[in-house]
Design a protein around this nucleic acid. Structure first.
Length: 424
RNA sequence: GCGCCCGUAGCUCAACGGAUAGAGCACUUGACUACGGAUCAAGAGGUUGCAAGUUCGAAUCUUGCCGGGCGCACCA
């Protein structure tokens, strides 16, 4: 989830990469899965955003508690150019007009960047829409029926402390306003109503306090606590040439998802974010992951793929139609061949465990091992016939082995959303 | 003060209680005038933060310290 009030930054990036990989891995393991992006398009942040854009559009200073990034000025200019009629709205409608116009553009920008980053969401779920569609009241009714809602001091509460939360949580404040937690609660009930039996939440470490209350919501809904599964991702620290890059919105040097992709490319960015378990803090050096060396294992894996693709092209150029001949595993007795066969056989188990544990980094680590095993095989075992050498059944079986390796690397890279180039 | 996560080779990190704790980079030394050298082979590098406990067996589980990160709203 994210506020549609600015560009996606590195805090979102780790989850964009890992979350989409988890979704793909789960699907590959046989689960029926939908990936959802929750848009925080309701509440005071939206109004601050709207006020900031409006101020920029009318040449006034942005409010102290508003958004000060340069993108606000750009958004304001864009809105002015494309919807000039907004400027002639009566003053009491201007704020909402500019807010909504800027919201649409900012959301669209987030969607485009995520698509560029190969992170596709099946559902874009709007917090505002939950309220407008009465899903919030419906969710409350459900929880009331289960007997976990109560009134105190003029506010409406959910008794999450019955299920391991530190304290009960407010759904409706004494002033009648709904809390953010109210939306979360309704969203959970909504997802269950739409037929999902497990809801996997991906939250940043700064939200780890939400784990207990989300699990409590599940139980208040009559579900097992594991119906709400919460993965906590530790923060990413960025360095460049060993120097820490401080992320500060105020200072205007936030690193956005777009910046990261510009700097290192989609493949290296995705791979670098996915190859580590998310519960460890991570330090990425921009210079290192931009390098095309083995500091950067994505190229090592992709190189193995390209190398095999090249060999298969060569085989084709030599007129070898290996697909027409049989694979004879009995001919592959070399130690390196056995290692490679064994490594290929592990793939299904790796995918299954990556799905079960929600740890797509296992796929990346496996691919690195598979690439090593392949390179070792390649070094020891000649595949194509040399010169005018006769084509033998061994050549053919080795070609099959190479083709299977290429396919497995391509499948594994696809699971984590990284391309498998035939040339590089 | 309470809670969650982390601490493994010089660096970035693996290891679903199980074999001699493994990779890459960096460092040292080697290997193609025939399939892509973005490769491969070999070497060196460790008291897994510290201490106790559980176990046949602990990097992994428990407890206490030390160090780092992040939270503890009728905010979103």
């Amino acid at each position: 989830s994210a506020n549609p009030t600015g560009p996606l930054h590195l805090g979102h990036t780790r989850w964009a990469a890992v979350g989409s990989a988890i979704a793909r891995v789960l699907a590959a393991a046989g689960a029926s899965v939908a990936s959802e992006f929750y848009i925080n398009d309701r509440g005071v942040q939206m109004d601050k955003f709207g006020a900031s854009v409006l101020a920029a559009a009318t040449g006034r200073p942005v409010p102290e508690d508003g958004y000060h990034g340069g993108y606000i000025v750009d958004l304001a200019a864009q809105v002015l150019a494309e919807e000039p009629e907004l400027s002639s709205l009566p003053d009491d409608e201007k704020l909402a007009g500019f807010r909504e116009a800027a919201y649409r553009r900012q959301l669209h920008q987030q969607q485009q960047v995520l698509q560029l980053f190969r992170t596709n969401f099946d559902v874009w779920s709007s917090e505002r829409a939950l309220h407008e569609s009465n899903a919030v009241e419906h969710g409350f009714d459900r929880l009331r029926a289960q007997g976990h809602v109560f009134e105190l001091d003029g506010a409406t509460w959910l008794r999450t402390s019955d299920f391991g939360d530190d304290k009960d949580r407010v759904l409706i404040k004494a002033d009648g306003e709904y809390t953010y937690f109210a939306s979360d609660t309704a969203y959970y009930v909504n997802k269950r109503d739409r037929g999902f039996d497990v809801c996997i939440y991906l939250l940043g470490a700064d939200h780890h306090g939400y784990v207990n209350r989300l699990k409590a919501v599940a139980q208040c809904n009559g579900d097992d606590k594991d119906a709400a599964e919460v993965l906590i991702g530790q923060l990413v620290k960025i360095t460049k040439g060993g120097q820490e890059v401080k992320l500060s919105k105020r200072a205007g040097n936030i690193v956005t998802l777009e910046d990261l992709v510009d700097e290192v490319g989609v493949d290296a960015a995705r791979y670098s974010l996915i190859r580590y378990p998310v519960d460890s803090p991570l330090t990425l050096d921009l210079e290192v992951i931009a390098q095309r060396t083995n500091d950067n294992p994505v190229f090592y894996v992709q190189y193995a793929h390209a190398r095999i693709a090249s060999m298969l092209r060569n085989a084709s150029d030599l007129g070898i139609d290996w697909r027409e001949a049989h694979f004879e595993p009995g001919l592959l007795a070399h130690e390196r061949e056995n290692e490679l066969l064994g490594a290929l056989g592990e793939f299904p188990r790796i995918v299954a465990s990556a799905a079960e544990l929600r740890e797509p980094h296992r796929v990346a680590r496996y691919l690195e091992g598979l690439a090593t095993t392949y390179h070792r095989f390649y070094d020891a075992c000649r595949v194509l016939p040399r010169g005018d050498e006769e084509l033998t059944a061994e050549h053919v079986s080795r070609l099959w082995l190479c083709a299977a390796t290429r396919q497995t690397i391509a499948n594994g890279l696809d699971l984590i959303g990284v391309s498998a180039p035939d040339r590089m």
